[in-house]
Amino acid sequence: MEREKLILDEKLQNKGKPLHTFEQMFEHALQFLSNPWKLWKSGNLIAQRTVLRLAFAEQITFARNEGLRTPKTTLPFKVVEGFSCQKKIMADRGGFEPPTP
């Protein structure tokens, strides 16, 4: 009983303290954002569920006649998408250089 009491006292003292430092958690988050596929292909079911929760804002839906629907992504991926999908235009047929005589 005394041993159990000591264990419970130790657990109470550690309650509320983070398991990892902010820097460690930030590092893990950046690693995930840089390549979520690496975590997905690990084959760990818990890791795959975590990827789905962190990447998509809601459950992925399936329409019987149309297949998978486009899911809503979470804020970090919307921000990254904003960087990569800035206004892009195609070059004219003549190219960028002025025509030569």
Rank of each mutant, 00 (worst) to 15 (best):
K11C: 05
T61S: 12
C85L: 13
L52R: 02
P18K: 11
Q59G: 08
E81R: 08
R3E: 15
P98C: 02
V51K: 02
E10Q: 08
V51P: 00
T74C: 05
L8V: 12
E97Y: 13
R49N: 03
L52F: 02
F83K: 06
E97Q: 14
C85T: 13
K38P: 00
Q31Y: 03
T61G: 02
P18Q: 11
N44R: 08
K38G: 00
L68Y: 15
F26T: 05
D9V: 01
R69N: 15
R3L: 14
K87S: 04
P76K: 01
A91E: 13
M25F: 06
P71M: 09
A47T: 01
L45T: 05
L45F: 05
L75W: 10
A29I: 07
G67F: 08
V80W: 07
E4T: 05
A55S: 14
K41N: 05
T100I: 11
D92L: 11
W37G: 00
F56Y: 14
R3Q: 14
K17D: 03
K87W: 04
Q24T: 09
T74M: 04
E4I: 07
T74S: 08
I60T: 04
F26A: 13
W37R: 10
I7V: 11
L68V: 12
P99S: 09
A57K: 14
L19N: 11
F77Y: 08
D92V: 04
I7G: 02
E10Y: 05
R69G: 05
L12G: 07
K78T: 07
L54K: 02
G94P: 00
A55E: 03
I46R: 12
R53S: 02
E27M: 07
L75H: 09
N65W: 07
M1V: 07
K5E: 14
T50V: 01
E10S: 09
N35W: 06
F62C: 09
E4K: 10
K11S: 02
W40D: 00
P98R: 09
M25W: 07
A29W: 10
P101C: 04
G43Y: 06
Q59H: 09
W40F: 15
G82V: 03
E58K: 15
P18L: 11
K72D: 07
L19W: 10
L33C: 12
E66C: 02
L39Y: 04
S42G: 06
L6E: 13
E97P: 00
K41S: 05
L68R: 09
F56L: 13
R3D: 14
G16D: 04
L30H: 10
Q59I: 03
T61Y: 08
K15E: 06
Q86L: 15
K78N: 15
A91T: 14
P36F: 02
F22D: 13
V79R: 10
N44F: 06
V79L: 15
V80F: 11
S34N: 11
F22N: 06
W37V: 07
I46C: 07
E27I: 03
K41Y: 06
L6K: 12
M1W: 09
K88G: 12
K88Q: 15
K41A: 03
Q31I: 01
E23W: 09
W40M: 06
G16E: 04
W37D: 05
L30Y: 09
F83P: 01
R64V: 06
I7P: 01
R3M: 11
H28V: 00
L39C: 03
K38L: 08
N35H: 10
F83W: 12
G82S: 11
L52V: 01
W37N: 05
K88P: 01
V80P: 00
E81W: 04
N14P: 00
